[in-house]
Simulated assay, not measured.
Amino acid sequence: MNDVLVLDRAATAAALDPRRLMAAVSDALVAVARDAVSAPPRIAAFAPGGLLGAMPGYVPGLGLAAKLVSVFADPARPGRSTHRGIVALFDPEDGRPLAVMDAEPVTAWRTAAAATHSAWTLARPGPVVVIGTGAQARAQVSLLAALHPAEPVTVAGRDPEAARVLAALHPLGRATDGIETAVREAATVYCCTGATRPVLRRAWLAPGTHVSSVGGSHGPELDDDTIRNAALFTEWHGAATTPPPSGAHELQRLPGDRDVVLLGSVLCREAPGRTSPDQLTVFKSTGHAALDVAAAHVVHRTATGRRADELPR
């Protein structure tokens, strides 16, 4: 065990190279769509104050990893919860443990990467809005700043000061006090909240808007009309077929004939994405173990100095 790389939160975040991450997450999403991933259903052990969940996964070309995450009530924020944990990466050939890293930046950045891929693939050109001011919104704004610093981003949230602090992470970031006003002008909306009820309404969305909804673990971020009117995309079929928290609150009551397209199928051009300029598109993320494997792979390769050309294309 002496050769196991151990990375704290700061070191894990520093090793999440944005462009390597985007490439690895794309490969993972395609592998999920092609049913090439081994990832059993999520399991959890329950303690008096919360739970410990486990998400193991294997992705060909990226590796073998498992995430352990505790979800406990946060006394400092009534009604909210903490998410703390680790990701362990193993050698897929001989099972040797390679690295242990902090799960929070892994989860936040792989989720932001998947949401960004959905926008790159499905959105039309135009203003970008990020709703939320927490850890996930921070990762989303930071990733956009790293990938496209010349494209403006507007941050909207319930806390104006927190929105201003977050917007400052982007060279062309700005904050706005009103979520509705910002959304009405947007071509792409990233919803990154801890919502228990919808924070975005169909009536606010212009024709052709793309929505990447990655929050809402405790309830729906999007209203029923948005889901009803949109072309729907997810990381995996379980987002619509399994109950929360593994499945999405918004996708629980879909009619049996409703089509939900896997984002990986669009990325590899095995399924269509946007079919008209005015089409409303929604990517509803619930996370997937394959994305944790992808991020852990990038962290390990970056931290150990492996070359970019050694990464999967």
Rank of each mutant, 00 (worst) to 15 (best):
G305C: 07
G305W: 08
L68Q: 03
G79N: 12
T286N: 09
L166G: 12
T107G: 13
R138F: 11
P277K: 05
L21E: 01
V155G: 13
M101A: 05
A137E: 14
V266S: 11
H210A: 11
H210L: 10
E180D: 10
M1V: 00
H148C: 02
A167E: 07
S26R: 15
L172I: 00
V299E: 01
D177E: 15
E151M: 06
P198F: 06
A47F: 14
A73F: 06
D177I: 10
L122M: 06
A186V: 09
L200V: 15
A99V: 00
R158P: 12
A36D: 14
T286F: 11
T111R: 13
L205S: 04
F46L: 04
E180Y: 02
R84K: 00
A294Y: 07
A15T: 03
T181A: 15
R110L: 08
D8A: 04
M1R: 07
G264V: 14
D94C: 11
A295G: 01
G50F: 05
R9C: 07
T176F: 05
A44C: 03
V293Y: 11
R42V: 15
H288A: 13
S213L: 10
R124L: 11
I131R: 10
V32I: 15
L291Q: 15
R253C: 06
T116Q: 07
L169T: 09
D309K: 07
A271T: 07
D257I: 07
A290Y: 08
H297R: 03
T121A: 15
Y190V: 02
G305F: 07
D8Y: 04
M101D: 01
Q252H: 06
F90V: 03
R34C: 05
S276G: 14
L147A: 05
V189F: 14
G238V: 01
S70P: 01
A289I: 05
A167I: 11
D3E: 09
E310H: 07
L64W: 10
S26M: 10
G157A: 15
A248G: 09
L144C: 04
F283I: 08
H117L: 15
A146Q: 14
L232E: 08
P198V: 08
G126K: 11
R306F: 03
P60D: 13
A162E: 07
S285N: 08
P56S: 06
R124D: 12
S213V: 14
H218G: 11
S276L: 00
P245A: 13
L51N: 11
R301G: 14
T107H: 10
E161M: 04
D224I: 02
R124G: 14
A28Q: 05
E270Q: 15
A167Q: 10
L147Y: 01
L222Y: 08
A14T: 06
R184C: 02
A28F: 09
T111A: 13
P60G: 12
R201H: 13
G219A: 13
A182S: 06
C192L: 09
L291D: 07
R9E: 15
T304M: 04
P243I: 03
D177C: 09
D94I: 13
R19G: 08
T154L: 13
S246D: 12
D74L: 06
A123K: 02
V153E: 05
